[in-house]
């Protein structure tokens, strides 16, 4: 565990010194500032719009960071050959992969904490703003907002596991990023396969679609942004199921990454 934590901390250090993190955070800040300008124009809907925009920016930019940092996390080690200096030590390959994964998860937590603070502040500026308060038709449900952010973190954990998996097999970071982005997009629409299932009446097609439904990541169920705006918080059973699903899916991908990396030739 000690070696895993050393690798995790080094991964975190590498990630937080990556320019992409700061550029993305800066763009997120610009987005939030823009939302402060746009929101007052939506008379009566300010609270809804500011929440919509803020959470959307948070989701989008955190995904960008995870995809760019996550898919290069192994590839860069292979390209720079720094991996040779680590694996020539008494470090097992699974310790390396798990350390990298945990480092990325730590990055997620830090990024979401910073972004979350920015989002809450952004919403507070409108919510507690004196100029438009008489026009509000909605109210802010801070507990639901924070819950949505926590599930966004779980979504990122799954996305981290996906990007790590592609990082071990893809021949370049760009290819890994494309695959991860593709799977993220697919994952956001996996729930729609249920609709497709209701329309299909052939048994083998039903079987194939059901298999795809269970194999592909269902990231949309972890997306609680819309519920948060209306103050809907999942009950304990729902929350436990979602947490379990995210952790099991990420764990499964982590095992796949370890197995793939275990047989990889370090060139």
């Amino acid at each position: 565990m000690k070696k895993v934590s050393i690798i995790a901390m080094n991964t975190l250090k590498e990630a937080i010194r990556d320019r992409i993190v700061y550029v993305t955070l800066f763009l997120m800040l610009l987005g939030l500032l823009a939302s402060q300008v746009i929101t007052p124009l939506t008379l009566g809907e300010q609270i809804k719009v500011i929440q919509d925009l803020s959470l959307a920016f948070m989701n989008f930019f955190s995904v960008v960071i995870v995809i760019f940092v996550g898919t290069s996390v192994i590839r860069r080690e292979l390209d720079l050959k720094t991996i040779q200096l680590i694996l020539s030590r008494p470090v097992r390959r699974y310790q390396f992969i798990v350390g990298k994964f945990l480092g990325m998860v730590l990055l997620d937590i830090i990024i979401l904490f910073i972004m979350g603070a920015g989002v809450i502040l952004n919403i507070l500026l409108i919510d507690k703003g004196i100029y438009y308060s008489m026009w509000y038709f909605h109210e802010v449900h801070y507990r639901a907002l924070i819950t949505a952010m926590a599930f966004m973190a779980l979504q990122l954990v799954v996305l981290n596991a996906i990007s790590l998996c592609f990082s071990t097999i893809a021949s370049s970071s760009v290819l890994g990023a494309i695959f991860t982005f593709f799977l993220y997009m697919v994952g956001m629409f996996t729930q729609d396969l249920n609709v497709l299932l209701k329309m299909v009446h052939t048994s083998y097609l039903t079987f194939i679609i059901t298999c795809i439904y269970y194999i592909l990541p269902n990231l949309s169920i972890l997306d609680l942004k819309n519920q948060a705006i209306y103050g809907i918080v999942p009950n304990f059973n729902q929350a436990a199921f979602l947490v379990l699903y995210a952790l099991l899916y990420a764990g499964f991908l982590l095992i796949v990454s370890v197995l793939l990396f275990g047989n990889k030739e370090i060139k």
Partner: peptide, 19 residues
Amino acid sequence: IRARSFIGYMPENPGFYAY
């Protein structure tokens, strides 16, 4: 894994973390 404890390895053109 115990064999790794005996080894110190220097690759050709070693790469390092730039940060």
